[in-house]
């Protein structure tokens, strides 16, 4: 009796799960359809996974492409001119009958131009950030904040145009020069251009300082101004440093605004001398240098030097940010 029952049960279960012969035809078809759509869905799923993966790969590919092309294009001229003569030669005469390709003037100009812009731009930017993050009454912040955002959005050629039409003549008049297109003009334009970046990064860092730090300082009897400068600013220093490095990167890489105000003569840097930056050295000769000529290849080599500078700045930025995160 028991065995019979077991057998019966087994038969029944086999019938249920093994085959669907007992089921009506419509249900079977439905299940088949379901199976098929699941299969299609599975395929779509895998395809989309691959598609998104490829999208993620694009930035990696782009960085590899840029690095590869900068090295491949920049190397031949350096090899022909000699690394030492190229980097430390002080004369650039690319179109002379006996051409000389020394880019030390460009390197030094880029360095001094950036230092100058940072010296002027960082204090103004930092104080403005302190204003926005810590001191501004709400109504004033509501004016200054959008102003900074607008400054960030203004195209570099517009800065260049203003520099060219206002700053350059002003410098010429004030310092009694033959031409006002000089390193000083470039420094002033760059200082304004790096302001918004420094302000917004420092502001974010200052706003992230824990309230307890400031309250402790206030509780010990310090005034609000003292607290801000002795507690909040030091506490936000890695964020502020990141803002400065960002500004340095922008100043080193800016081309069009600088080319319009710096005068474009390959001089060693001097505040009132007409100068070329690494970026403007590329831009000012690229359009007429013949393909395959040493001149054009040398321009690509300048690009490579600029690229290396930027990569170092990027690495420093990454380091500063990571240090800030750890804290």
């Amino acid at each position: 009796m028991r065995i019979q029952l077991l057998l019966f049960l087994r038969k029944d279960t086999v019938g249920m799960s093994g085959s669907f012969t007992n089921l009506p035809a419509g249900v079977t078809a439905g299940m088949e359809r379901h199976k098929r759509t699941m299969k299609v869905k599975h395929i779509i799923e895998r395809v989309m996974n691959a598609v998104f993966f490829i999208c993620g790969m694009v930035s990696i590919a782009a960085v590899l492409l840029i690095t590869l092309y900068m090295i491949v294009a920049g190397f031949p001229a350096i090899k022909e001119i000699g690394l030492f003569d190229f980097l430390f030669g002080t004369v650039w005469q690319s179109t002379a009958s006996d051409p000389k390709f020394g880019i030390l003037p460009f390197i030094m100009t880029s360095i001094w131009g950036t230092i100058g812009a940072v010296i002027i731009g960082v204090p103004i930017g930092l104080f403005t950030a302190v204003f926005l993050a810590k001191m501004a009454p709400k109504k004033l912040a509501a004016i200054v904040h959008p102003a900074v955002e607008l400054l960030a959005g203004i195209p570099s050629v517009v800065y260049g145009l203003i520099g060219m039409m206002v700053l350059v003549p002003a410098i010429m008049d004030i310092f009694n020069l033959k031409s006002g297109s000089c390193l000083l003009a470039a420094i002033l334009v760059l200082a304004v251009m790096i302001l918004p970046g420094i302000i917004s990064v420092s502001e974010t860092a200052l706003k992230a300082v824990p309230k307890e730090y400031e309250e402790a300082s206030l509780g010990l009897g310090a005034t609000w101004t003292e607290t801000v400068f002795k507690v909040s600013v030091p506490a936000a220093k890695s964020g502020i440093a990141a803002g400065i490095v960002l500004g340095v990167g922008r100043a080193v890489g800016e081309a069009m605004a600088v080319i319009m105000v710096a005068g474009n003569v390959a001089n060693m840097p001097g505040l009132f001398k007409s100068v070329r930056f690494l970026t403007t050295a590329i831009a000012s000769e690229m359009s007429y240098a013949a393909d395959g000529s040493l001149q054009k290849n040398a321009l690509f080599s300048i690009g490579l030097v600029l690229f290396i500078f930027i990569m170092i700045i990027n690495a420093v930025l990454g380091f500063v940010l990571k240090k800030g995160e750890k804290k």
């Binding site: 993620g56 790969m57 930035s59 990696i60 782009a62 960085v63 492409l65 840029i66 092309y69 900068m70 294009a73 990167g249 922008r250 080193v252 890489g253 800016e254 081309a255 970026t279 590329i282 831009a283 690229m286 690509f300 690009g303 600029l306 690229f307 930027i310 990569m311 700045i313 990027n314 930025l317 990454g318």
Partner: peptide, 19 residues
């Protein structure tokens, strides 16, 4: 991917022009 994206953001436009 995130590192390369940040790197791309830091590269100046004239380098993009060259490449």
């Amino acid at each position: 991917v995130e590192f390369t994206t940040e790197t791309l953001a830091g590269i100046p436009s004239i380098i993009y022009g060259l490449v």
